[in-house]
C-alpha cells in the first residue's frame, strides 16, 4: 500500500506491461517514470531514485477485518479469482497460480537492510520478539485469520516482550492482552493502547530475495 504523493505531486499509477525479474513494473501517468512494484522506487524516468512511502497494511481475511473495523469501507469490483483465501496463509490451500513450491514471508526493508520472517516459522512460533536494525519488533501471527503483522514493541516508552498463551497475545511486563491483528490492548493495564504497526510486506520468498539480495531470514536458533 503506497502513498501517491511524491515531492508535493500526486501521481496516478498504472500497470506498465513491463516485468522486471517477473515482477510488476508500474508507470506514473504524470512523468512516465517506471516504478518497481516491490521496491516502490522509480528505476527509470524523470523521478528515478524517488521512493513511494509505504502505509502499514494488513493482509487478513474478510471476517477478521469486518469484525475489527465495523465502520470500514471496502473497494468493490467484479472478482477476478477466488483463490486467495485464509487457507493459503494457513498452508491449507496451495499458493495460487504457482507451478513450483514457494513460500510466503513477511518482510521489512529500509535503505540499508532487509529482514524477513517465514510464514512456516510464524505458524509455529506465533509471536517472535525480534529486532530490525535498532528497532525492537514483534512479528505475530493470528492463526484464526491467517494474518501476519509486524509491530513495534515500545509501549509508553517501555520495551515489552510478548508471548501467546491460551490463544491470547500477552505481554510479559503487564500481562495485558493484545489483539494480534490490530495491535490494540483489549484488556489489562494497557487496555486501549495500540502498538505501532510497521510496514511489513507479505511476499514470496524468491521475489523478496531477488529485490533484497542482502536480506536476512529469521531462524528459530536466533
Amino acid at each position: 500500500m503506497y502513498a501517491r504523493r511524491v515531492d508535493g505531486r500526486t501521481l496516478t499509477l498504472a500497470v506498465s506491461g513491463l516485468l522486471w525479474e517477473s515482477s510488476l513494473v508500474m508507470i506514473d501517468q504524470e512523468t512516465q517514470s517506471l516504478w518497481s512494484h516491490l521496491l516502490g522506487e522509480a528505476m527509470q524516468g524523470p523521478l528515478q531514485g524517488k521512493k513511494l512511502d509505504v502505509f502499514p497494511s494488513s493482509m487478513t481475511d474478510w471476517r477478521a477485518w469486518r469484525s475489527r473495523y465495523p465502520d470500514s469501507t471496502v473497494m468493490l469490483m467484479s472478482k477476478t479469482t477466488n483463490e486467495y483465501r485464509r487457507g493459503v496463509h494457513l498452508n491449507e490451500l496451495p499458493l495460487p497460480t504457482l507451478p513450483l513450491p514457494d513460500a510466503l514471508i513477511i518482510g521489512l526493508a529500509n535503505d540499508s537492510a532487509a529482514k524477513c520472517w517465514r510464514f512456516d516459522d510464524l505458524r509455529v512460533e506465533l509471536a517472535i520478539n525480534d529486532r530490525f536494525g535498532d528497532v525492537e519488533v514483534l512479528v505475530v501471527f493470528d492463526s484464526e485469520s491467517g494474518t501476519a503483522s509486524v509491530f513495534g514493541r515500545q509501549v509508553d516508552g517501555g520495551m515489552h516482550t510478548f508471548r501467546f498463551e491460551d490463544n491470547k497475545l500477552i505481554d510479559d511486563q503487564s500481562q495485558s492482552v493484545w489483539d494480534p491483528v490490530t495491535g490494540v490492548a483489549d484488556s489489562g493495564v494497557h487496555e486501549g493502547r495500540q502498538l505501532s504497526k510497521l510496514p511489513g510486506i507479505v511476499s514470496l520468498k524468491p521475489a523478496w530475495f531477488t529485490f533484497h539480495p542482502d536480506s536476512t531470514t529469521w531462524a528459530p536458533s536466533n
Binding site: 497494511s57 494488513s58 487478513t60 481475511d61 477466488n82 485464509r86
Partner: peptide, 8 residues
C-alpha cells in the same frame, strides 16, 4: 468470510 483482503 475467508477471502483475503488488504486492509489499511
Amino acid at each position: 468470510d475467508d477471502d483475503l483482503v488488504l486492509g489499511v
